[in-house]
Design a protein around this nucleic acid. Structure first.
Lengths: 224, 224
DNA sequence: AAGGCCACTTACAATCGCTGTAAGGTTTTT
DNA sequence: AAAAACCTTACAGCGATTGTAAGTGGCCTT
């Protein structure tokens, strides 16, 4: 069952939206806190986010931009102001659809359904800056170049990307990949790091994996 | 450069649309024959299709359905009739957006751009009925199950899917895979067919590849 | 400046999946 | 029943992947 997260400060409208989506068979979750909505949104593992523009704290536009930079989830913007500039702005930020209130529930539901269907076929991507990786296939894409990594290296890079721009500890990686350092050679990480670096080099991503002496590794992506 | 194919019978509007998109840096192609537009549309390798509803021959709706069943290209429906039923119907058929004429060029361009961006991250899929295959990775998806095929089998299945529901000739497959039967063992096809069948079996797709004695193979998908 | 720690590099071998070949069996057609 | 078409199984070569091993180089502390 798909989860739809609704970010709307008007209580009445929020409940109505929840009902609309619940009736269509979705798990509809409303966001209640608007101080730091990002966290609550992501915790609910949304398959679709319905976003109001006028919010108490951060605007819907800002939220949209922030979310799109991190997760590959469709975002539907819902607003009371029907202006072309707003729509162009929203679409430019990466919003997937832009509807104006009042919106017929059936239209809303149909648009939402369409987005969910589309995103089912979207690659499961993680990214750090402009570098993306398809989690399922370990294909790293950077501009027009790409390379498919072996599974082990893919797992490592995924971890690094998920932590980006922070670092991933050695322990953490060892745990995630080999269940701790108990039964494998201790330099296994270094070897695989070298392999990963070599592969990234081959598509021009030199110096992307940085060593943090004594603790672990992190990514450093030069923005285009 | 992305190609946008415009299917619109009104000459004046078609040229205008072509201009709009050309100005944005796309290759804009107009369709002129409406007897069998499918062929002309596909020949142009569209990255996006803009579809009018009222056409001389087949309706835009029919075209949309037909196209969506074959290729993974975004379709934007453009119509003069602004009715909710039409919109719901179009979205239900798999249309990705639905705009009404007259439509501001900037809005149209922004929506088109969004769709193109979205579909960049969409897996390159071919399908036969409910069975899909990611062309890049040879991953076959059926409902919740999937399997990744080896390259050779993937190529064969792709060919079969592209021909579906028609058949693919033995010669044709031999040519596509091994450049004819000259330098390979003659039963190579049979062996790989067996392997393919076995792999498809493993996710429940039994009896999907049918032998057509004397000519080739074809797919037979039991619709869900 | 020297020793020790940490990280890197290179080489190697085991394993596994993919692929084409070969040989023999089964089904269908005439 | 014989021939043609198709299927099945086994096998071996090849390449990619992965962990191990051993040696090298750089950085930090004393």
């Amino acid at each position: 069952m798909s989860t739809i997260v609704i970010v709307e400060d008007d209580n009445y409208l929020r409940e109505e939206l929840k009902h609309t989506f619940a009736r269509e068979g979705y798990r509809a979750v409303g966001i209640s806190s608007f101080e730091e909505p990002e966290k609550e949104i992501l915790e609910n593992k949304p398959d679709l986010i319905v976003l109001d523009v006028n919010l108490p704290g951060k605007s819907g536009f800002e939220l949209c931009k922030w979310l799109k930079a991190r997760v590959a989830v469709p975002i539907l913007i819902l607003t009371a102001r029907e202006t072309l500039t707003d729509e162009l702005y929203a679409l430019g930020l990466g919003a997937d659809d832009f509807l104006t209130k009042p919106c017929h529930p059936k239209r809303l539901a149909a648009r939402a359904k369409r987005l969910l269907e589309m995103y089912k076929n979207v690659r499961n991507l993680v990214h750090a800056g402009d570098v993306m990786m398809d989690v399922d296939t370990c294909r790293v894409i950077w501009g027009k170049k790409y390379i498919t990594l072996p599974e082990t290296e893919g797992k490592i890079l995924r971890l690094l990307m998920e932590r980006y721009p922070a670092l991933a500890g050695k322990e953490e990686i060892m745990d995630a990949l080999w269940g701790g350092a108990a039964y494998v050679d201790e330099n296994i990480l270094q070897v695989n790091m070298a392999r990963l670096r070599k592969n990234l080099d081959s598509i021009g991503l030199k110096r992307m994996v940085k060593t943090v002496r004594g603790s672990g590794y992190c990514l450093e992506v030069t923005e285009l």
